[in-house]
Design a protein around this nucleic acid. Structure first.
Lengths: 246, 246
DNA sequence: CGTAGTATTGAAACGGATCAATATCTGTGG
DNA sequence: CCACAGATATTGATCCGTTTCAATACTACG
């Protein structure tokens, strides 16, 4: 069996400094996400950051606890979720390298954050970060762009789970995971760092529905699963058709 | 959310200047939304804003068109939505007074925006706004807080539509509409400015399901509908129980 | 006052949730 | 390195609620 997910970020040089990726508000060359921070800005952030190496499955903070820090992912995957009285555990977001999380509300974290894989993090004290941003409008603008980007991502998420069909929802996630898969090659391999249960939480489905949807994707020749943490695209057209917001 | 406090809005005096409302990152007195901008900041924004008065049902911009402006709602309700190939029209957000919208991606609007009611708007050219924010870190921090707030709202929306039960989803929306109802009195009246169809789009339900859910809310004595655009809370406990993220 | 969009109500069917049993994986300790 | 145990995932059967289709009622606007 292939070794389990070793998530390497695409075109991300080994990072000793925090970086941010997003699609800017205004038109740029490609239209895709770009690296936002300048060298100077990275150094500025680095100077107020602590680097952390956290093993998988670690709770970083819990909802409704005092928010002391804001985080930037250096490497690996983090999820944010809520624990509901019903036992449901909706996943609000998966955070990848160069994503930011931990922005609080009235001094409290809104969601719980947990690592999905081993993760490298940059941790910045909220108060210090606020001061830094208040003193550097250019740097702050990068944060504004990034948070705006995450808002749009949240809206795409909303649209995805608004769909009725489980297969389409799973296809959507697979495509988005593909963008975060380290691939030198164009082999069509997709890394799936999270569990089926996480996927279910993210897509608003039951675990069983996710499992069945994967099965159907496989039977219809769209993708072939390699273990539980990788998939191989066999019919790109078909995947795109399913994933494209119908 | 589950918090008991339905702190009544310190509602807006007729505004000639743009304002923003959000819950700041750090702890404040009440815990509820506060008015973010100082007088000076409002004036600064006003100086780069055009005031618009727009009739209901007006398209403000369409998805994937060139984004020239950012908007702040002065009065009234706006919705943002996407048109999907399937004919579905998911509503991403309802925007109320002191909300911001129109933040673009790579120079293009992501969603379509349409007025729900007659609306007063403040329109700011994106390029000018960016310059202004780049030159005033304190003002920009207010925008960062506001966009962060809208990100959290989007996540609450995600949780709401992740629910399986139509009644619960409608209850959630009713409670949130209550916070935006401009009534001095505590009569328990909720204004529902949008159509059932808009509600369906927002909640990821069919029009019929919304209608039936409203009916059930009424039959079970939770609320009484007054026409199609108002409801009266008859059992606050019951409404809260249904609405509280289960 | 009429007409077109909007909303309600009913009947049927689809699809996912749930319950239940089994299989597979992962990490731990022998 | 292997075996075991708990967690995770698959598969099957049934149930339930929403979607869909269809007909009717309502309401808002000209």
């Amino acid at each position: 069996m292939t070794q389990t997910a070793n998530i390497r970020r695409p075109e991300a040089p080994p990072q000793n400094q925090p970086t941010l990726r997003a699609i800017p508000l205004s038109e740029t060359g490609g239209g895709g996400p770009v690296r936002l921070l300048s060298n100077r800005q990275r150094q500025e952030l680095a100077s107020i950051s602590a680097r952390l190496h956290v093993p998988r499955r670690t709770i970083l903070y819990r909802e409704r606890t005092a928010a002391e820090s804001v985080f930037i992912v250096g490497h690996g995957v983090v999820k944010t979720f809520r624990d509901l009285p019903s036992g449901k555990r909706p996943v609000l977001a998966f955070l990848f390298a160069e994503d930011i999380f931990g922005l609080s509300e009235d001094g409290l974290y809104v969601n719980t954050a947990q690592t999905v894989t081993d993760v490298d993090l940059f941790r910045m004290p909220l108060a210090v970060l606020e001061d830094t941003l208040a003193g550097d409008a250019q740097l702050q603008l990068q944060f504004l762009v990034k948070v705006t980007h995450e808002l749009r991502e949240a809206q795409r998420h909303t649209i995805a789970i608004g769909r009725r069909d489980a297969v389409g929802r799973v296809a959507t996630l697979l495509r988005s995971l593909e963008d975060h898969t380290a691939s030198e090659d164009e082999s069509g391999i997709i890394d799936i760092p999270m569990t089926r249960s996480d996927v279910a939480g993210y897509l608003g489905l039951s675990l069983e529905a996710v499992s069945r949807a994967c099965r159907r994707l496989e039977r219809s020749g769209i993708v072939a699963f390699v273990g539980r943490h990788q998939a191989r695209v066999r019919d790109r057209r078909g995947l795109d058709r399913l994933a494209s917001a119908y």
